[in-house]
Structures are given as structure tokens and as C-alpha cells.
């Protein structure tokens, strides 16, 4: 019984949150890694692209709620998602035309593009704050739980409850759909294959008649879609706040690098590595251990390795370790 209780507590506080967070990070890291693979720079504006997409979703959700349109138990934000994706696509395509295209034609060094992306990051950040303000915004509605802790206890008679939030369920489902679609696109369609070819060997892709501007355009559109989905899911699950998306940049980059920059599969793996490390290291294990340890040996403290204030330190340390020992990442990435 104690073992079951421990397992439930572990699932409730570590596994489920980490899976949801990992899915969000993986989607973010996929965007970063695609930009890196095709446009060959680290896009610092990615966090704010996520914020922008999520912001449109928030605004549309409010509009729909105002009109009384909803999805019943599911959050209305899912209805707003397609609109948000389109809006975000428009934003990144305009940005590419106005800003990045020039440097691409100049064949500027990657570091210049990184600086430029920082400029873009601040403009996007400014736009988001200008439109929706810097504060927390709530836009989640519908049923809060798929199964609540109380229901679970009644159902099983265990002392520990297992709560699965609707947003966590949706996060996983949507992330799986997005990833399946992405890999289908990259591996099965002509355009997707041409993107991989361009990422693999730019000169040869040109020789094969692949139009780089088309590849770049599709890349931005996919990245905008991924960023919006990631941003909305994170916002639903936690909260929407512009500055938080800037802070997500570090775990997202860590995920992409840990997996191997430029490698989509690696980005997904990296997202989960970072998420699980962050959650396990900042979780107070007292409860789980109390169930598992023999009587009298229960831990007196919280058994929390690191306070949650330092969760970014976890991704940072993992990042440093990877850079020190395997700069190309777990899966073979492009960068050294």
C-alpha cells in the first residue's frame, strides 16, 4: 500500500508535471532547432515569438468567451489556436522580409544574425507588452481536471491523490499531434524533404534546384506554428506573462543543445531531459520517501535538492556539462 501511495505521489508531483513541461519545452526547442538547421543561427527571439502567438490566442479566446462561444469541457483557447498560428506566421514572415532577408543575402556571420535576433526579440517583447501589458493573464476555461485528487482517492481508496489537469492532458495530446505532423511533413513530403536537404547541404540543395527562399519561408511558417502551440500550451498550463517567455529561452536552448542543435529528434529528447531534471531536482521528496522508508527512518527535512527559485540553474548546469563533454549533443547535431 505504501509503495502504491509513493508511486501515486511520484506521478502526481513529478512524472505528470514533467511530461507536460517536457512537451512544452520540446515544442519550443523544435522551433529553435529548425531555425538553426535551416537559417543557421540561434534565434533569441524565439521566446518572444511564443509570447506573441500566445498573446493572439489569449485575445481571441477573450473575444470568443465574450461571444459565449466555447468548447464545453475543453479550453476555448483550442479554438483560438488556428487564428493565433496564422497571426504568428504573418509576424515572422514580415520580420523575415524586413530584417533577416537582408543579412541572408549578405551572407552575414551567424553571430551577426544572433545580435539581430536580439533586436527582434526586444521589439517583439515591446509589442507584446504594448498590446496586452506586462502582467499575468488568465485565459484557461472549461473543466479544470480530467481527474481530481479527491475523485482519485475515492476511486482507489489510496491516501494519496492523483490529479491530472485538463491542460496537462491537452498539452500531451496536442504536442504528440504536432510532432507527428512535423515528422510526417519532414520525412514524407517533397517540401519537407527539401528542407532537410537544405539543412544538410546548402550548396548541393541549390544545385538540385531547391529554392532557398521557399525553404526559408516554410521553415518560418512551421516555426511560427510550433512556437504558438508551445506558447499557448505553456500559458494554459501555467500562466501567460510576457517576461516568463523570455526566461523560457534558457531551458529551451538547453533542450535544443542537449539534443544536438539542428536535430529535431534531439530537440524532443532534450526537452524531456531538461524537464525531468528540473522537476526532480526541485521537488521536495519528503512525501515519497516517507512512504518508502521504514518507520523511524523518515527524512526530517524536505529533501529538496534545490529550491524552485533555481530551476533555471538546472538547465544551465546540464547545458554546461553537455558543452564540456559532448558539444554536438546526445543526438548528433550540426554544431561544434
Amino acid at each position: 500500500m505504501d509503495f502504491l501511495n509513493a508511486l501515486v505521489a511520484l506521478s502526481n508531483f513529478v512524472l505528470i508535471p514533467a511530461i507536460a513541461y517536457g512537451s512544452q519545452l520540446a515544442l519550443g526547442a523544435l522551433g529553435v532547432t529548425l531555425i538553426y538547421g535551416i537559417l543557421r543561427f540561434s534565434n533569441f527571439a524565439h521566446g518572444d515569438t511564443m509570447a506573441f502567438g500566445a498573446m493572439i490566442a489569449v485575445l481571441v479566446t477573450w473575444g470568443l468567451q465574450g461571444m459565449g462561444v466555447g468548447l464545453g469541457p475543453l479550453p476555448t483557447a483550442l479554438l483560438a489556436l488556428p487564428v493565433a498560428i496564422l497571426g504568428c506566421m504573418a509576424l515572422v514572415l514580415v520580420t523575415d522580409r524586413l530584417v533577416y532577408k537582408f543579412y541572408r543575402e549578405q551572407k552575414a556571420k551567424p553571430v551577426i544574425l544572433v545580435i539581430v535576433s536580439m533586436g527582434v526579440m526586444f521589439i517583439m517583447n515591446g509589442v507584446v507588452r504594448f498590446i496586452i501589458g506586462p502582467n499575468d493573464q488568465k485565459f484557461a476555461d472549461g473543466e479544470r481536471f480530467i481527474i481530481s485528487a479527491r475523485e482519485f482517492k475515492q476511486l482507489t481508496g489510496l491516501r494519496e491523490g492523483l490529479a491530472i489537469k485538463t491542460t496537462q492532458g491537452i498539452t500531451v495530446v496536442v504536442a504528440v499531434i504536432a510532432v507527428v505532423l512535423l515528422f510526417w511533413f519532414l520525412n514524407r513530403t517533397r517540401t519537407g524533404k527539401s528542407m532537410r536537404a537544405y539543412s544538410d547541404n546548402e550548396d548541393l540543395a541549390l544545385l538540385s534546384g531547391i529554392n532557398p527562399e521557399r525553404v526559408v519561408m516554410y521553415t518560418w511558417m512551421i516555426v511560427a506554428a510550433l512556437a504558438t502551440v508551445a506558447g499557448v500550451l505553456y500559458g494554459l498550463d501555467k500562466t501567460f506573462k510576457p517576461f516568463v517567455y523570455f526566461q523560457l529561452l534558457l531551458p529551451i536552448f538547453a533542450s535544443a543543445i542537449v539534443g544536438g542543435l539542428g536535430n529535431p529528434l534531439g530537440a524532443i529528447a532534450g526537452g524531456f531531459v531538461i524537464a525531468f531534471s528540473e522537476v526532480t531536482i526541485t521537488y521536495a521528496w519528503k512525501k515519497v520517501l516517507t512512504y518508502l522508508m521504514p518507520e523511524g527512518l523518515e527524512p526530517s527535512g524536505l529533501v529538496q535538492l534545490l529550491s524552485t527559485d533555481y530551476k533555471f540553474a538546472v538547465s544551465f548546469v546540464i547545458l554546461l556539462i553537455v558543452l564540456l563533454f559532448k558539444p554536438t549533443g546526445l543526438f548528433k547535431g550540426k554544431a561544434v
Binding site: 527539401s194 532537410r196 536537404a197 544538410d200 547541404n201 538540385s208 534546384g209
Partner: peptide
Amino acid sequence: GFVPQTNNIFTSMTVEENLEMGAFI
């Protein structure tokens, strides 16, 4: 049709995909 001296294949793609990309136009 031109075959460069180096970097003349898409290393991360399958042989068949390489041929497909050759026929992209």
C-alpha cells in the same frame, strides 16, 4: 548535371531521398 568534388551528397538522408532531391526540379 554537375557533381561537385566534395560535399556532393546529402549525408543525413537516405540514398533514395538523395535521388529524389536530385530530381527536385
